[in-house]
Each structure stands twice: as C-alpha cells, then as structure tokens.
C-alpha cells in the first residue's frame, strides 16, 4: 500500500515535494513578521475602532505617556502616546496599513508597466527595443526622487502621488530584468515552433514568454517591497508623503524628532517597525529567489 501511494508522488509530485522541501526551509522569523505585518495592516481599521483607541483620537490628559512597562505609563496605551495624547500603537497599525498599501500598489503598477515594456522590448527587438531601453537607461540615471519633490510641491502630496512617484522610480528595474530574460527565452525552440505554427506575436508573448519570466518578476517585486517602504517613509519623513493627520511610519518618526530626549518612543518604535518589516521582506525575498529562480542571485 505504501509503495503504491509513494510511486505516483514521485512523478507529478516532484514539484509538490519540492514545494514542501522549500517550505521547510522557509525563514521562520521573517515569514512570521511579514504575515503579521499584512494581518495588522488588514485589520488596522477594525482593531482601532474596537480594542484600541482611534488613531486620531486626541486626549490631552495622556500627552507623552511612556510605553507600558515604564513608569508613568498606562496599560491603555501599550506603546505610549504622542504630544496630543494619541495612541502610538493605533497610529503604528494604521501607519502599517498606509505604508504597506502605498508600497504594494506602487510595485503592482511598476511591475505591470515594466514587465509589459520589457516583454515587448525583448521580443520585438530592433528600434522598439532601442527606444525602450534608452528610456530605461535614462530612468535609471534620472534623479527621479528630486523631480518627484517638484511634483509634490506643485501638485500637492497625496496617496496616489506617492504611489506614482514610487512606481516611476521602480518600473525600469522590471523592464530591464524582463527584457534580459526574454532575450534568452526567445531563442529557444519552443518559441520558434510557436511562430512556425502561426501563433501571433501577442499570443507568443502572453502564452509562451510571460509564464517563463513570471517567477523572476515575482522575486524582484518581493525584493523591492522593502526598498519601496524605505523610500515611502523617507518621503513621509520629509513631509512629502501621505499628508497628516493620517499616520505613516515615516511621519511618525518625524513627529518624534523634536522630543527625542523626553519622548524617545515616538520616533524609535515606528523606526524599529520599518526596520523589522523591511528586513523581513528582504530575507523573505532572498528565500523566494532561491526557491523560484536561483539564477537571479545577483539581484
């Protein structure tokens, strides 16, 4: 019985077994932190309206309450409060939602645009390739973050503004990666066969090339999440991110800057959150890369 059930597992289940083996090598702490970050971000709205105080609820009696086990703290505000008596934990949770949402939406945009352009550029070649790749080169040497600041000043900061800035900064990396991959895949026989069989160009790109480069895109996207969060927080810190009173990790750090001596937790704790989450995303991305696409080591 055992030998019967084992035999088929080896043939089509090789992949499954690979997945199981990979899952056991999953980096435990980073995965837990990434999952936790997603969960808190998703439930931030619910948590801050039931168990925890509202993120923007001002209570001047509790200004600058210290985090819980320290003296002068209250269990009602586990991570302390800021200069208006707003609960830091609630603000960090909502901040997690804002920061993660910006990073993820931006990466989705960048991945879609970059991948499409990379596919077209790599497959069509010739002048299309030349034009698109020149643009990618320019974007990579373009001081985009500075130009983004000009836009923030003229148009004003908002959620979609930040998303646009990050997407603008990121798409070229996807385009370059995908183009390189496509160049190696399109020389294979199965693509030539598809062309001989009369498949149209869009069909070859979507059906034959895209599935092969998909892993690379996922890996790059995961590795870019951490970077996007850091840039978003830097923009927020400069006052060019999602405008207050909406909390983001970056503007929470900025708020605590002036009271670093007396109320260190306002700056230190959100920064710690950024570091842990970004580090976890990077380690998670490293693992994903080793599993899905080991040849991308140099990313």
């Amino acid at each position: 019985m055992q030998s019967v059930s084992r035999a088929p597992a080896a043939a089509p289940g090789g992949r499954l077994r690979g997945l199981v083996a990979a899952a056991t090598r999953l980096p435990k702490v980073p995965t837990v932190i990434v999952v936790l970050a997603f969960l808190t971000a998703l439930s931030a709205g619910w948590l801050t309206s039931t168990i925890l105080p509202e993120a923007n609820q001002i209570d001047l009696r509790f200004r600058y309450t210290a985090p819980w086990p320290l003296e002068g703290s209250s269990p009602a505000h586990l991570l302390g409060t800021d200069r208006l008596g707003r609960d830091l934990l609630s603000r960090m949770l909502v901040g997690a939602r804002n920061s993660l949402a910006v990073a993820l939406v931006a990466i989705c945009f960048a991945a879609v645009v970059g991948t499409s352009l990379g596919l077209v550029s790599g497959y069509l070649g010739r002048w299309v390739d030349a034009v698109i790749m020149r643009f990618v080169d320019i974007m990579l040497s373009f001081p985009a973050i500075l130009v983004a600041l000009v836009f923030v000043v003229t148009v004003g900061a908002s959620f979609w503004m930040v998303v646009a800035i990050l997407a603008l900064l990121l798409w070229a990396h996807f385009a370059r990666l995908v183009r390189g991959e496509v160049l190696s895949w399109k020389a294979r026989d199965f693509v030539a066969l598809a062309r001989v069989a009369g498949a149209s160009t869009p069909r070859i790109i979507v059906q034959h090339l895209f599935p092969n480069i998909f892993n690379g895109v996922v890996v790059l996207a995961t590795l870019q999440v951490g970077w996007a969060i850091v840039v978003e927080s830097a923009l927020s810190f400069l006052g060019a991110g999602i405008p207050p009173p909406a909390p983001t990790w970056g503007n929470l750090v900025a708020e605590g800057r002036d009271v670093l001596d007396s109320a260190w937790w306002i700056s230190v704790l959100p920064g710690l959150a950024i570091m842990l989450v970004v580090l976890s995303f990077n380690l998670f991305g490293d693992w994903l890369r080793d599993v899905l696409d080991p040849k991308l080591r140099q990313l």
Binding site: S233, A234, F237, V253, G271, I274, M275, L279
Partner: peptide
C-alpha cells in the same frame, strides 16, 4: 542592515 535601516531613523 544597510538595505533595511532608513537613514533618517
């Protein structure tokens, strides 16, 4: 740490 520590923090 280089990639994950925001420099302002």
């Amino acid at each position: 740490g280089g990639q994950s520590l925001p420099s302002f923090w």
